[in-house]
Design a binder for these strands. Structure first.
Lengths: 177, 177
DNA sequence: CGCTCTATTTATAACGC
DNA sequence: TGCGTTATAAATAGAGC
């Protein structure tokens, strides 16, 4: 190397450290490229400088994703499959819940009744009757509320109209009289 | 380097290729280690030889998983999250469908009716009436089918009983007579 | 920063075991 | 394969611009 043997120890001067980093980064990338070409190897080199600057080399014969996948296979280390599996489980559960809900709705709409017993059918019937009652009550309530509102509006309008008429006739008396 | 300038080109002799790979692999790992220590950098170096042999160097200050995570953050490249995100989307969709289904069921059970208009309530009422009709029909059908089955069974039993009685009386006539 | 210029160290190809 | 040896190419520290 340069003028005098260097000691492999953290360079305390941060400017020099960055300069050395830049130079050596070039060198190591070159080495990686040579290894790729000369030896037909697949190399992934990822570097973060002490200031957080990112650089990488990846053999042209592959991609970083491929290397990561292969790394996992070979090293046996599961980097993210635990997440993945948990999510898959979650999804399956949701799908099952979904299917059950949809079946319940179909039944409540009069379908998919074939494998229901008399008791179950009786239960469903009663349930539907109750629901129907509640929905009807709600409907009547909404209708009556709306009717009241309309009645009130009409009353108000009539009042206003009467007032206007009175004012109008008073005005005529004053101006004409 | 060695005795004579070398050309950076694939080494065709596979034995030499492997020898060169081993030597240069050592060299590049040494460079990576020096970069780590001298420059306070974080380095991940993953290599697969042409025969598939795996080796890696990782700075002692970090882990391969950390480098992978950081790589993704910095490069913006989705290594696995393409899978992951699609799954998350899927899951969210399922959850939404689920919520809608549950709301529909609640309504069909007479709940959650507050923000429904008269028209919607009328539709639901009619729907429930129809469903109730279908469920009742189904119930009657099941009951009548079951009744028929019982009737048939009874008829068969009576027939068998009559036959037995006849056979018995005939037997008595033969043995006693 | 980034580039150039050396002196010097380091890496390594070729060879042998 | 792996480890020495050696001649030589390559990398690079330090300096200057």
């Amino acid at each position: 190397m340069g003028r005098g043997k260097i000691e492999i120890k953290r360079i305390e001067n941060s400017t020099n450290r960055q300069v050395t980093y830049s130079k050596r980064r070039g060198g190591i990338v070159k080495k990686a490229r040579e290894l790729t070409v000369l030896c037909d190897a697949e190399v992934s080199l990822i570097m973060f400088s002490s200031t957080g600057k990112f650089s990488e080399y990846i053999s042209h014969t592959t991609t970083t994703k491929k290397i990561f996948d292969r790394y996992q296979q070979v090293s046996g280390i599961n980097l993210w499959s635990s997440h993945y599996e948990r999510m898959q489980e979650h999804l399956n559960k949701q799908k099952e819940i979904n299917n059950n809900l949809q079946r319940e709705i179909r039944r409540r709409m009069g379908g998919d009744l074939d494998d229901m017993s008399i008791e179950e059918l009786r239960g469903l019937e009663q349930n539907l009757e109750n629901s129907l009652k509640v929905v009807r009550e709600r409907k009547y309530h909404v209708i009556s509320t709306q009717t009241d509102t309309y009645k009130k509006k009409i009353r108000n309008l009539q009042e206003a109209h009467t007032n206007l008429l009175r004012q109008f006739s008073e005005m005529r008396i004053h101006t004409m009289g």
